[in-house]
């Protein structure tokens, strides 16, 4: 009798856990754009295979990206980006680990746009720096997406831009993030 009861209990518990709303969301197709606008040249690198995790119960948000997966329209830019600046062979990945500071303001079950502030640590070129970025969370028909645009200084990450190319490469680089999440069932 006891074992039957225990079995029923565990089955119902299992069913209950299955029913709960997911709190973890992820994407493997986040878009990250790297944009340097200098007087003589606009350089844009696009990566649409960034990975991101979002935990809506804690507001924790993470991104990871492979530097070599940034695509530029001209091959020379891509080679210079990987060889001279990002040093992608030495530092193949960049990542961001942070928190949505005002995540309590976001109603995850109600459709709408929510302005958020994210603070965390950005690791790039082997250097970790604190970064704060403003962004937007959009909830629409149960789907969650996040966008953000922020600037980082290359010099903060020990990336030196030679004086010769000062007019072509800006030390301040704009990073654009677009991330459409889906529930993580792992």
């Amino acid at each position: 009798m006891k074992t039957i009861f225990a079995t029923i209990l565990s089955i119902s518990l299992f069913a209950f856990t299955l029913k709960t709303e997911p709190t973890k969301y992820f994407t493997r197709e986040a878009n990250i754009t790297f944009l340097s606008e200098a007087p003589l040249e606009k350089i844009e690198g696009i990566n649409n295979q960034a990975v991101s995790m979002l935990d809506i119960s804690t507001g924790q948000i993470e991104f990871a990206v492979l530097m070599k997966a940034f695509e530029f329209d001209r091959a020379l830019l891509q080679e210079h980006f990987n060889e001279n600046y990002a040093e992608s062979d030495k530092f193949p990945k960049s990542n961001f680990k942070g928190n949505i500071t005002n995540f309590a303001d976001v109603k995850w079950a109600v459709d709408g746009d929510y302005s958020v502030t994210v603070t965390g640590k950005l690791t790039m070129h082997g250097v970790t720096k604190d970064v704060t970025a403003k962004g937007k969370i959009t909830v629409k028909a149960g789907a969650i997406s996040a966008t953000s645009t922020f600037n980082v200084l290359m010099s903060d990450f020990n990336i030196v831009i030679p004086t010769v190319v000062k007019d072509k490469v800006n030390n301040s680089v704009k990073i654009e993030v677009i991330s459409n999440y889906k529930p993580y069932l792992g």
């Binding site: 992820f26 493997r28 295979q49 960034a50 990975v51 990871a64 990206v65 492979l66 070599k68 997966a69 695509e71 193949p92 990945k93």
Partner: peptide, 12 residues
């Protein structure tokens, strides 16, 4: 092949 994040990533 550009490496691995959660999946192995192939570009272009």
């Amino acid at each position: 092949c550009t490496g691995m994040l959660m999946d192995v990533v192939l570009t272009r």
